[in-house]
Design a protein around this nucleic acid. Sequence first.
DNA 1: CGTTCGATGCACT
DNA 2: GTGCATCGAACGT
Length: 206
Amino acid sequence: MTLPRDFYDRPTLDVARELLGAVLVHRHGSVVTSGVIVEVEAYIGESDPACHAARGRTTRNAPLYGAPGLSYVYLNYGIHSLVNAVTESEGHPAAVLIRALAPLDGMAIMRRRRLREMKGRRTASGGQLDDASLCRGPGNLTMAMGITLEEHQLDLSGVRLFVEPGGMPVREIAWGPRIGIRVGTEQPWRGWIAGHPAVSAHQRSG
DNA sequence: CGTTCGATGCACT
DNA sequence: GTGCATCGAACGT
């Protein structure tokens, strides 16, 4: 079962909460990668200074104003593709950023992609990557899953990049300030599964 | 613990 | 030209 389009046509914080514990799946040819969503952030409307729509509609952020249930992928810092799910009805720009996954399928290729990206660089751990680290962080998870700008504007209820509910039981959800932004930090719009080892940025408890 | 820094692409000013 | 919804290493305290 795949979450339908109208799942995303709702208040963004509701969508964000219910994405926790669901499974993000990427089919790239015959290669399938997936993982349980354990960390998300909500970006809601033009009044949210951290939302890409904060300064009105542009060609870049137009998909945020469009149909809910599509992917919104953009390149950040010239290096990382970040993947969002567009939420709320047309004309209401909002999205949920997927920040971390607990890997399920394709862990071998995830590890290969992550290590290839780190090639040439010295690593403190000698190039070790435990399972919980494969998709920890929004840039790391897209690297591991092979999500690029080619996955921009895909139907999340389709067959290539989609979400299935019920990946794991969610005992406790914690909420706190969003990470890595310079404005809008007063809103507790980062949600994560309390205590999960794949959550990024040291804040795993609530 | 903390801050700083380089790598890198694109949209916007 | 500036500014990022990043990452990991390096170095200071």
